[in-house]
Design a protein around this nucleic acid. Structure first.
Lengths: 153, 153
DNA sequence: GCGAAATTGATACTCATTTTCAGTTAGCCA
DNA sequence: TGGCTAACTGAAAATGAGTATCAATTTCGC
């Protein structure tokens, strides 16, 4: 029933093999949660995922959603992010690295990539004696839509 | 008793005038908490501050430390930050903006500033239609000390 | 010094997330 | 297929950071 893209099928299959490798079990609950996550547009909170999961199977508990999202994160299919309010949001792990631009008014999250910034980060870390392992960068501002609305009243 | 630098004296005085302006009260508890904060090396968690505060006055409660740190943040003397684990850490607000480089092994936090990165951030946001309001950037890596220790065993 | 308004400390609460635990399954082996 | 056991599940209790509540206390303008 679910619209599944080639890449989400792929991720689903990867999840299944991860379970097999780790001698973990494949369950109907996990299947639903992973499907819902992969169908989503990304940046979903556990609460949002839980809401969508329950529409398919109202008997699935909150804890199972948490547990499954942790599994997905471990096996590299999901990335866990924490934006300003601190609550976790999950996005589908993409091959290319990217950062986030977040609208302070409507909460919209846009992804972007800027190699020149990455290069400068690497350089800044090295200058201070660090071996860079990762980073977190979020830009906060007001998106075009919100600025337009504001000026109209 | 407390070693106080010229700038911490200054910040202390600024706190006092903030209280006066806002018609808030000066109390012994607030004095202790602010002193402890200003003497510290920065990036202290509430728990750490609370521990140090209690050595001077064991009757001061946790809530008062939270409340006072919030006041300090409001009046621009402290900046509240949230690094990976999510718990708040406070640093003395400096005039110049800076970002953080954090050692994943020992937790050391180093501040740095890189105008070229800032400029590129501004540019990236504008390109996507955003008016930039702020950002959060943390680099994670392994510091020189930890790399040295590791290689010695 | 008075007295209203602010503050305090203890404690109860919130909210996101984790753990616990008793009952339920999945998946390996015969 | 049937059995077994470790893994899984849902509900509910527990956690941990931070906030709100409230009676008792303190500050400070008059």
């Amino acid at each position: 029933m679910a619209k599944a893209t080639a890449s989400s099928d792929d991720a689903f299959a990867r999840f299944k093999s991860y379970l097999r490798e780790q001698r973990l079990k494949s369950t109907a609950q996990r299947d639903v949660i992973v499907e819902v996550f992969l169908e989503g547009s990304g940046h979903a909170s556990v609460e949002e995922l839980y809401g969508r999961v329950r529409k398919r199977n109202p008997r699935i508990g909150y804890a199972t959603v948490y547990r499954t999202m942790k599994l997905l994160t471990e096996c590299g299919i999901a990335d866990e992010r924490h934006f300003r309010n601190g609550e976790a949001r999950y996005e589908i792990a993409e091959k290319e690295h990217h950062d986030h631009l977040i609208c302070e008014r409507c909460g919209k999250i846009v992804e972007f990539e800027e190699d020149r910034i990455e290069a400068l980060q690497e350089q800044a870390a090295r200058k201070l004696g660090f071996e860079l392992r990762g980073h977190k960068m979020e830009l906060y501002g007001i998106c075009a839509d919100c600025r337009r609305k504001k000026s109209r009243g």
